[in-house]
Design a protein around this nucleic acid. Structure first.
Length: 293
DNA sequence: CTGTGTTCCTGTTCGC
DNA sequence: TGCGAACAGGAACACA
């Protein structure tokens, strides 16, 4: 389930191989993933070089010397693995998936191959002109990066004003914050000790000041993302990242997937619960995350 | 504009 | 042991 930290981890893992690389050829093994591939996808990539590899929200962005940007979204189950040119290095970074779900192979001039594998095909790729990227429908409405300077308690409080939705739905909205998914929203709400069911507007400014709840939420989000990136990064360095996506951080979850288990907060012995919001599982501690108004 | 529900997809897990 | 049902969820889309 690649969210921002997993995509960032993938970006960092790919950067040494893909940064500056020339694409010799692209093997496209089906016409679509979640969406059709753009017209002449393989031909437009062939012979180009990657001049930068960036991330925006959950998107990987490979800027090409052709003036286009290769946009990759991993969806739910997408993964990119590297088969190094030098087989003596014997490094296939990340666990390869079932080969029948290998949909794209990027063959690089270095001899390395990057494979996109995605059993559920919720991912997609596109090619967008570099100059039009910010105006593209995929990107123009995205909110700020949660790890950027634009993501502050003031911002969050201002956007929360007058909102009647539940807090969890608000945080999942990519127009508000770009890159959070179900797992990290659950974890951040737990860290901030806020109920997922709380009304969003209770974060909003009071007498022109953000509430203490907004002030708690911002570092909770930043910290959980930073820690997850660090965990992914360390496992990548060791080439031991087992599933190519979650790194080791899944072992640090405090609530996600822990329903029926005991809350780890000091002095709290409540049982973690699961409920459904917007047809998604929400995990929370009913004691630490009480909605005290 | 806002909020909510549906849909796409298939490997894994669970109950009988 | 086998089989069907439930589940996982990002984001486009439809709709009230």
């Amino acid at each position: 389930m690649p969210e921002l930290p997993e995509v960032e981890t993938v970006r960092r893992g790919l950067a040494p191989v893909l940064g500056g690389a020339r694409i010799d050829s692209v093997e496209q093994r089906r016409a679509n993933l979640r969406f059709p591939f753009p017209d002449n996808f393989a031909a437009r990539l062939k012979g180009t070089s990657v001049v930068a590899l960036n991330r925006r929200a959950k998107y990987l962005l490979a800027t090409l010397d052709s003036g286009e940007v290769l946009v990759i979204h991993l969806g739910m189950s997408g993964r990119l693995t590297i088969d190094a040119a030098d087989q003596s290095a014997a490094i296939s970074q990340g666990q390869p998936g079932n080969p029948k779900h290998d949909h794209i192979k990027f063959r690089l001039a270095s001899g390395a191959t990057i494979t996109y594998n995605d059993p559920r095909r919720f991912g997609f790729m596109d090619l967008i002109s570099d100059t039009q990227l910010d105006d593209h429908p995929l990107f123009k409405n995205l909110g700020p990066e949660p790890l950027g300077n634009g993501f502050t308690a003031d911002y969050l409080a201002a956007r929360a004003m007058g909102r009647n939705s539940e807090l969890k739905a608000f945080l999942l909205d990519q127009r508000i914050i770009a890159g959070l998914g179900n797992i990290y929203v659950c974890e951040a709400l737990y860290r901030a000790r806020l109920s997922p069911s709380r009304k969003t507007a209770t974060l909003a400014t009071v007498r022109a000041r953000p509430t203490k709840r907004a002030h708690a939420l911002v570092p909770a989000i930043k910290d959980v993302l930073i820690e997850a990136i660090e965990a992914g990064g360390s496992s990548l360095r060791d080439y031991r990242q087992a599933d190519g996506a979650m790194g080791y951080f899944q072992h640090a979850f405090q609530v996600y997937g822990r329903d029926g288990e005991i809350c780890r907060a000091k002095g709290c012995h409540a049982t973690i619960r699961r409920m459904t919001q917007q047809a998604r599982s929400t995990f929370y501690c009913p004691r630490c995350q009480r909605c005290q108004r």
